[in-house]
């Protein structure tokens, strides 16, 4: 982040010199990130080139190269931005149900998640399927991204009759299970219909905490209410 008040006329930058330089820089970066998200979502990471991103963002190749370490660097940053949006969206749903029983809040969070992923299914494929094929650094970010969802499950320990007896990896197990199910749906081309697996996701996430019977009750309730 540059300081927005720093005066920098930017010699020879033409029309854009009317804007504060830091603003122009940030907006170019954001345009390239958005372009990366759109292009990689549409044609897959493998097939995406820096030239595609440069063209879609309407920036120069030099700008791209000055901002990111190659296509992978740009992708990784774009990926983080997508996860930020997802986490914020899920978090809003979770917080808007504060005071309600924990299972209701988890259901609200999962519903928000599948709705967003379904409506942006190309981006969802990029963020959940493509990313696992990009390489080591992407995998580290992917794991970190999943870790950001454990917060929503922590309260489940107090909702569970097992409490502290629950295995240490319970949140990771629940999130991993739900993520794999979403992964399979998106990979099979059913991303737009992701809402249909919401009851299954509810069961998978709640079951480790509430046990099979209570989780099945919640699953059926969600299936009825749609």
């Amino acid at each position: 982040m540059g300081s927005p008040s720093a005066p920098n006329p930017g010699p020879g930058s033409g029309v854009r010199s009317a804007l504060p330089q830091a603003y122009a820089v940030r907006s170019e970066r954001e345009r390239m990130l958005e372009a990366m998200v759109r292009v990689a979502a549409a044609k897959g990471y493998e097939a995406t080139t820096a030239a595609d991103v440069v063209e879609a963002a309407g920036v120069s190749r030099e700008t791209f190269e000055a901002t990111f370490v190659g296509k992978e660097g740009c992708f990784l940053e774009a990926y983080d931005a997508v996860i930020d949006v997802l986490v914020a969206h899920v978090s809003t749903a979770f917080e808007s149900t504060v005071g309600q029983p924990w299972p209701n809040r988890i259901i609200a969070a999962l519903r928000a998640l599948v709705d967003l992923l379904a409506s942006e299914h190309d981006i969802a494929r990029m963020a959940m399927v493509e990313v696992t094929a990009v390489g080591e650094d992407a995998r580290i970010r992917y794991r970190a991204a999943l870790g950001r969802f454990t917060y929503f499950l922590e309260e489940g320990r107090s909702a569970s009759a097992q409490g502290d007896e629950l295995p240490a990896d319970t949140a990771r197990f629940a999130i991993g299970g739900a993520t794999s199910m979403i992964f399979d749906e998106i990979r099979a081309g059913r991303g737009p219909e992701l809402r249909q697996v919401l009851p299954d996701l509810v069961f998978a996430v709640l079951m480790p905490y509430l046990g099979p019977e209570a989780a099945e009750d919640e699953m059926r309730r969600v299936a009825r209410e749609g």
Partner: peptide, 16 residues
């Protein structure tokens, strides 16, 4: 348990 139960177990174990 519902059919999703073993799938969820496999998916969670696989993820860990």
């Amino acid at each position: 348990p519902p059919p999703i139960a073993p799938e969820g177990v496999t998916a969670g174990i696989q993820a860990l």
